[in-house]
Write a protein that binds this DNA or RNA. Structure first.
Length: 227
DNA sequence: GGATGATCATAC
DNA sequence: GTATGATCATCC
């Protein structure tokens, strides 16, 4: 029995996009079977399965290093679950939210800006009533923030970072931000990390992450597909 | 139905 | 705990 080995990292954007185009229209089950990748019955305990499968197939660097998925190309891969009508079903995780040592933090050197500089979006028809292996891969495309989109992201980042720096992290909830929000990003509610508290003290709080709101990613999909 | 808060697996 | 990959579960 023969089966494909792990794809090598793409050496050019054109090669990467050729691979992306080649898997459009396939189900995740077909792709997983081809690469002898496990296929869970549901994503309850495999929430990262889709992303990890796609990473493997496209030749993204494995591991949990804080680098873009395609370091040579400077491209970050994001799968995005969409509904039957093509709308995002979930927010999109961007990065951990830094909660301390913010005195020299700027939008320009922020991890959010770096992460979103160049993204390969890959929509997956991923309604919950479709089994994971029956979900269908859509047309992936490259995106870089427009001037307006970057301005929106920057505004949110600056507002939220200022609140954190002023010791107001525990005042922040998912309602803050026009296009990007801060929500918990932790193993469970008992996980704690350092943050700036009242009067500049150090407090313990739930680790947070930056997430793109669905109306923002929906706009990206609309600009691409003209919905 | 959609958004916010909570959580799961894994590597190190 | 932090970082990777996110979706689940609940509340409005």
């Amino acid at each position: 029995m023969t089966f494909p080995s792990k794809p090598t990292p793409p050496t050019s954007i054109a090669q990467l996009m050729t691979r992306v185009d080649a898997i459009a229209g396939l189900t995740l089950g077909e792709l997983a079977a081809h690469y002898h990748f496990k296929t869970p019955k549901d994503l309850l305990k495999d929430k990262g399965w889709i992303g990890q499968l796609i990473e493997w197939v496209l030749g993204a660097s494995a591991g949990s290093r804080p680098e873009p998925d395609f370091p040579e190309l400077g491209i970050e891969l994001k799968t995005i679950p969409i509904s039957y009508t093509g709308k995002p079903l979930e927010t999109t995780y961007v990065s951990v939210t830094p909660l301390i040592n913010l005195q020299n933090a700027t939008w320009q050197n922020s991890v959010v800006k770096k992460k979103l500089n160049h993204v390969l979006w890959l929509p997956i028809l991923s309604e919950r009533d479709i089994r994971p292996d029956q979900r269908i891969i859509g047309s992936g495309f490259l995106w870089q923030p427009t001037a307006l989109q970057e301005a929106q992201l920057r505004q949110d980042w600056e507002e939220l970072t200022e609140m954190i720096a002023l010791g107001e992290i525990d005042k922040i909830n998912g309602k803050y931000g026009q296009v990007m929000q801060i929500r918990p990003k932790a193993a469970n509610a008992k996980a704690l990390t350092n943050a700036i508290g009242p009067n500049g003290s150090i407090i313990q709080t739930l680790p947070r992450g930056y997430y793109l709101k669905t109306h923002f990613t929906q706009a990206i999909l609309s600009q691409q597909f003209g919905l």
